[in-house]
Simulated assay, not measured.
Amino acid sequence: MRTSNLDSTDRKILRELTGNARIPVAELARKVGLSKTPVAARLKALEDSGVITGYRATLSPRKLGLTHVSFVEVRLDDTRPAALQAFNAAVRRVPEIEECYMIAGGFDYLLKVRSQDMADYRRVMGEEVSTLPHVTSTTTFVSMEAVVEGSSPAL
């Protein structure tokens, strides 16, 4: 199922679920204007097609004491497939790395690193990020405020 194949009811279902993934099917049906059975069938179709990839709890970084956010540009000394695969596998094992993107531009990867404070970030950089395979240099940008964060794709 492609985004272009989603009708307005599918989009309503997805918007409701992004606000509350634990909403009962009966309540979801009421909110989108259908009965329970067709909504359950649509949910199954959205899951089977891979549009819905899972359900999870959204945690509060503030309540967990993880309020320090940094973005790190990473440059590698080798960008052949084996080096990229080694870096990708290693970066997935660092829990403080919340997001990682391969970039087309003046550097190779952009990381979003979440930590407790600057001292914790320095530890993550020294013990984790700088020891990742093929890392040759990094540049850090510290976030002062999250203006938009963790939003869902526009539907």
Results as ranks from 00 to 15, higher is better:
Asn88Val: 06
Ala41Cys: 12
Glu128Asn: 11
Leu43Val: 11
Thr37Ser: 15
Glu98Cys: 03
Thr67Met: 00
Gly65Ala: 10
Leu110Asp: 12
Gly126Arg: 14
Leu64Ala: 09
Gly19Arg: 09
Arg123Val: 00
Arg62Glu: 15
Ser70Tyr: 01
Ile103Cys: 06
Glu99Ile: 00
Ile97Leu: 00
Val91His: 10
Gly33Met: 01
Lys112Pro: 00
Thr67Ile: 03
Arg11His: 09
Ile103Ser: 08
Leu14Gly: 02
Arg122Tyr: 05
Ala40Glu: 10
Val148Gly: 05
Asn5Phe: 01
Ala41Trp: 09
Leu46Pro: 03
Ala89Glu: 13
Lys63Pro: 02
Phe71Gly: 08
Asn20Leu: 02
Gln85Met: 05
Leu43Ala: 12
Ala119Glu: 06
Ser143Ala: 14
Ser60His: 06
Lys63Ser: 12
Ser49Tyr: 03
Leu28Ile: 08
Asp117Ile: 01
Ala90Trp: 04
Val91Asp: 12
Arg30Gly: 15
Thr136Asn: 14
Val148Asp: 07
Tyr109Asp: 04
Glu127Asp: 15
Phe87Val: 04
Val142Thr: 06
Asp78Gly: 05
Thr37Gln: 15
Leu14Asn: 01
Leu76Lys: 12
Phe71Lys: 14
Cys100Tyr: 02
Leu111Ala: 00
Ala146Gln: 13
Val142Leu: 01
Lys112Val: 01
Arg114Glu: 10
Leu155Lys: 04
Leu110Ile: 01
Ala83Cys: 13
Leu111His: 10
Thr131His: 11
Val51Arg: 11
Phe107Cys: 10
Thr131Glu: 06
Arg114Cys: 01
Leu132Met: 11
Phe107Trp: 14
Tyr109Glu: 03
Asp10Cys: 03
Arg15Gly: 03
Ala86Val: 09
Gly33Pro: 13
Thr140Phe: 02
Gly33Val: 04
Ala57Asn: 07
Leu17Glu: 01
Ala104Gly: 14
Gly50Tyr: 01
Ala29Gln: 12
Ile52Lys: 09
Glu127Ser: 05
Ala86Asn: 09
Thr9Ser: 09
Leu28Gly: 12
Asp117Met: 00
Leu59Trp: 04
Thr131Leu: 04
Tyr101His: 07
Arg56Thr: 07
Lys31Ala: 12
Gly106Met: 00
Gly105Arg: 03
Val69Thr: 10
Leu111Asn: 11
Glu128Cys: 10
Arg56Cys: 08
Ala45His: 12
Ala83Asn: 14
Ala40Gln: 13
Met102Ala: 15
Gly54Lys: 10
Thr67Pro: 04
Lys36Tyr: 09
Thr3Glu: 14
Met1His: 02
Phe71Pro: 15
Arg80Thr: 08
Asn20Trp: 04
Val74Leu: 11
Leu132Tyr: 06
His68Arg: 14
Pro61Asn: 04
Leu111Lys: 00
Ser143Met: 10
Gly126His: 07
